[in-house]
Design a protein around this nucleic acid. Structure first.
Length: 896
DNA sequence: AACGTGCGAC
DNA sequence: CTGGTCGCACGTTA
């Protein structure tokens, strides 16, 4: 007998019985799988969550005995009797595979028996265990996600039914069941039989919910009483019941849990023992669990192997005056420092800074900071002698800048480093990458656990999480540095992305000027169009409908008007613009015209409304650039997105008129690369025909058209030109002949021939595209001209659809990514050019292949020449990089 | 709150 | 089944 059981020997003994699959599933969905992939590719989120929940329950409930029951894949008496049982369930997610085995291994190492029974479900094992436990005089606590377990509740047996992930809620007893369902636990199965259970594919009596079922049960004492009086139950539900008596009987039979199985394990063997230390160490090493290991050994009163460098992260020195500050950095600042700002939730301003060195931590409050201390801090922050690592350099730089603090000496941004290592992650929050790379859980300082807001900004509630974050940033930086080098990302980080963060910070701070009156005018205009289109649409069908609801539109289009069916989507048939256009051609119905006009106008008004809301106090719009989102290396723009302002339609272009040159500046200047992606294609493929065309400055599409169609360039018709243009652009996206045929509205045969002719003349392009995918399959990643990698593990997927998507991504990534690299380099060049020449002109926007600058008086000529030069020199390709420049008082006037 | 649809840009 | 990368608004469902 172990010590831990002796300790509680005076208390009643308690058996904890767990439904293994249901707990594992809850854990799986509570924790994101992508954060718990170990080096072998195996996912461990369900294992981690399961063990974590188990430890919590052992700590809270202090059981003396523990057992875990699992289902088997083999048929059970229920599925044999009723083949639809548990049918219609979704397939188990791929990431879940193997995790049950791992959980069972952990249980074995913890000396906790796992029980399975061929032909029976875990629920029957649990029911039997509850009965045996009670018979042996134990209290029983059942943990199950299946409501059928409620029938087991007695004076001595309680059920823990976890709602979402965490088991904060108290176990259910008889009164809790009665309060919730209005029946006693022993009657719960009768209630469930009447109501049915969708998760098990057991339909109940239609129209009967828990309320009606409980009423009947209480009236007649249970199912037998109900059946005895079945003819006296009135109304529609009575009728419904009489029609579904057999279903109810079947349900009741199936949801009855067996309590008399012959289990292979005796209760005595479930006594909680110390874990097998060696087995746990070995297993947790393989699973890369560190924090759980500590929790586990703590719980069982064992010292972890080595005091796993959880060293005094909690401790930190408060640097309250200039002298303390200067001396702390003098003694601890020679190593890489992790740094983490704390900002006020309300104002958004920075209120403090945490620092972490290898052997000490510090916190500086910026609230009521005296001048001398601020100066000392400013010195430290702006000094390149103190090497700092931060998470989200751009944001930190802006925060500090708002307080007049210059930030320099930042040698690593863990957000960008994590992005360069894994560009496909959609999220590089500090807590997430700490979880992935360090297996450390970092509570975000947003809200203290008790739900109280932290008013005391001097207090440990704010400081401790910040210090911990600073520590984690430092650890992450050290941990990821070799990974970044291994993945060829170091130069990109130091020479491209980090300097670019500074440029972007300045662009965001600058914002772009807005003509508010014009914005209002556009809003009114578009509203008029919406109203007109709405009226027309309603007139065409004779009633009102929400034109923004695809669901309601489907009813109108495909039921009322009985128009031909469009392409299938998850929720029925698509009503997208392309399909509406098709329908219009086929039927000429006026409703379609009005609907399309409504769609156009609402989209434009939405855009205008979004811009209106985004105008800041200075009358300008300050977008935010996301530097670590797009997997190819592009930037993205948000709050608001200024990279999708309309330009293709005339009405839409009017919106560009509201972006205007600001006071004190002379004009806006736009500079964009001409056909940069096709030029990169020419460069990467080395296709001599394409290269020659660009070198001679020919109209590329005309040139290609003349070769594909075998005519003189002058004889290329506009139709021919648009065909090869679509083709050329489509190539970089993995366009199929089907896609091409759809876009050009030609037959698939014709599209196929077009592609054949194209490749006959530009064979190097096809060779290149094939080689890209082959290489990516071999190496596991694609690479841009400047070495930016994108890893595409799904190229090896068994799922054809996923594999195809990955192949198209592989085709596109080097081209789109190289273009992104090039304009990023150009931005660094332009910024440098502006600063070196001491110009007042500033960069405002980047739209993938275009830069928008605000030009100061008298600087236009110098700026234009410099921008052309820098953009043209951003890469040395086999073809020239052409740059178009436009000038004007609005973005529209300056544009294309 | 999370998902699905639809659509703007490059 | 069938073109890549994004962000955003709306309706609907959980």
């Amino acid at each position: 007998m172990s010590d831990s059981t002796k300790l509680v020997a005076t208390e009643p003994q308690r058996l904890l019985v767990i439904d293994g699959h249901s707990m594992a599933f809850r854990a799986f969905y509570a924790l994101p799988a992508e954060n718990f992939a170990i080096s072998t590719g195996q996912h461990t989120n369900a294992v981690h969550g399961f063990v974590s929940m188990l430890l919590t329950m052992i700590r809270q409930q202090k059981p003396t005995h523990v057992a875990v029951a699992f289902d088997l894949d083999t048929p059970t008496f229920r599925s044999l009797e009723y083949t639809e049982y548990k049918g219609g369930r979704n397939k188990t997610p791929e990431e879940f595979y193997g995790q049950i085995d791992l959980i069972q291994k952990v249980m074995e190492a913890m000396n906790i028996p796992t029980i399975t029974m061929d032909g029976y479900e875990a629920d029957d094992i649990i029911a039997t265990l509850a009965a045996q436990g009670e018979a042996a005089g134990l209290d029983v606590l059942v943990v199950s996600g299946d409501r059928d377990a409620f029938q087991l509740i007695t004076e001595k047996t309680l059920v823990l039914y976890p709602k979402k992930g965490i088991s904060d809620i108290p176990p259910m007893d008889g009164d809790a069941v009665e309060a919730k369902y209005f029946v006693r636990p022993e009657q719960y199965s009768d209630l469930a039989a009447l109501v049915g259970e969708t998760a098990d594919n057991l339909p109940g009596v239609p129209g009967v919910g828990p309320k009606t079922a409980a009423k009947w049960i209480n009236l007649y004492g249970g199912l037998e009483g109900i059946f005895a009086n079945i003819d006296s139950i009135k109304g529609k539900v009575g009728e419904s019941l009489r029609e579904h008596v057999e279903d109810v009987k079947r349900n009741r039979h199936l949801n009855h849990l067996l309590r008399d199985l012959e289990l292979p394990v005796a209760i005595e063997a479930m006594e909680l023992e110390r874990p097998d230390r060696e087995a746990i160490e070995e297993l947790f090493d393989a699973l890369e669990f560190t924090t759980l290991r500590k929790r586990l050994f703590d719980l069982f009163g064992e010292e972890p192997e080595e005091a796993r460098e959880e060293k005094s992260i909690a401790e930190h020195q408060l640097l309250g005056n200039a002298e303390e500050l200067t001396s702390w950095f003098a003694s601890h600042g020679a190593v890489l420092l992790g740094m983490h700002p704390v900002s006020d939730e309300v104002s958004g301003g920075v209120v403090g800074l945490a620092f972490a060195a290898n052997d000490a931590n510090a916190y500086v409050s910026l609230e009521d900071i005296d001048e001398e201390t601020q100066t000392a801090l400013a010195t430290v922050l702006s000094s390149v002698s103190y090497a700092k690592a931060v998470h989200d350099f751009k944001d930190t730089y802006k925060l500090l800048g708002n307080r007049g603090l210059e930030l320099a000496g930042v040698v690593d941004d863990t957000m960008i480093t994590a992005y360069l290592i894994q560009p496909d992650r959609r999220n590089h929050d500090l807590a997430d990458i700490a979880q992935v790379h360090l297996k450390v859980s970092l509570e975000t300082a947003k809200e203290p656990a008790d739900g109280q807001l932290a008013f005391d900004l001097e207090g440990p509630d704010v400081q401790t999480p910040a210090v911990r974050a600073a520590h984690v940033v430092r650890e992450l930086s050290l941990h990821m540095a070799p990974m970044l080098i291994e993945r060829n990302g170091e130069v990109l980080l130091k020479e491209l992305e980090m300097p670019l963060s500074l440029v972007l910070a300045k662009m965001e701070n600058a914002g772009i000027g807005i003509d508010a009156a014009k914005l209002d005018e556009l809003y009114a205009d578009f509203t008029k169009s919406i109203d007109a289109a709405t009226a027309e649409a309603f007139a065409a069908i004779g009633h009102e409908v929400n034109l923004s609801s695809p669901k309601q539109l489907q009813v109108v289009l495909f039921e009322e008007l009985d128009l031909p069916k469009t392409k299938k989507i998850k929720t029925g048939f698509t009503t997208d613009a392309e399909s509406l256009q098709d329908l219009l051609v086929k039927t000429g119905h006026p409703f379609l015209v009005a609907l399309m006009a409504y769609r156009d106008a609402t989209k434009l008004r939405q855009t205008v409304e979004g811009l209106r809301k985004a105008v800041a106090a200075d009358g300008r719009i300050h977008t935010t650039y996301a530097q670590t989102v797009a997997a190819t290396g592009r930037l993205s723009s948000l709050n608001p997105n200024l990279q999708n302002i309309p330009v293709r339609s005339e009405e839409g272009r009017r919106i560009r008129e509201v972006f205007v040159v600001g006071e004190g500046y002379e004009t806006l200047l736009t500079a964009d690369y001409s056909q940069i992606e096709m030029r990169i294609m020419a460069h990467l493929s080395g296709d001599e025909g394409l290269i020659q065309a660009y070198q001679e400055g020919e109209d590329l599409h005309r040139f290609v058209g003349s070769h594909v169609f075998g005519v003189e360039p002058a004889e290329v018709t506009s139709e021919m030109r648009s065909k090869v243009k679509a083709m050329s652009y489509g190539l970089a996206y993995g366009l199929s002949s089907f896609g091409l045929s759809k876009q050009l509205k030609i037959s698939v045969d014709e599209a196929r021939n077009l592609m054949k002719d194209y490749f006959a003349r530009f064979g190097a392009v096809r060779d290149y595209l094939r080689a890209v995918v082959d290489q990516a399959r071999k190496d596991g990643y694609t690479e841009t001209i400047f070495g930016r990698r994108r890893y595409l593990p799904e190229l090896a997927s068994d799922n054809r659809q996923l594999r195809d998507i990955a192949e198209r991504a592989a085709l596109n990534a080097p081209i789109q990514g190289s273009a992104a690299d090039i304009i990023k380099r150009a931005m660094l060049g332009v910024q440098e050019g502006l600063e070196e020449a001491g110009l007042k002109t500033r960069m405002l926007l980047q739209v993938h292949d275009e830069l928008v600058l605000e030009v100061a008086a008298g600087e236009l000529d110098a700026v234009e020449a410099m921008v052309r030069q820098k953009m043209g020199a951003a890469a040395d390709l086999l073809v020239p990089l052409d740059v178009h420049v436009g000038i004007g008082n609005s973005w529209q006037d300056a544009g294309h």
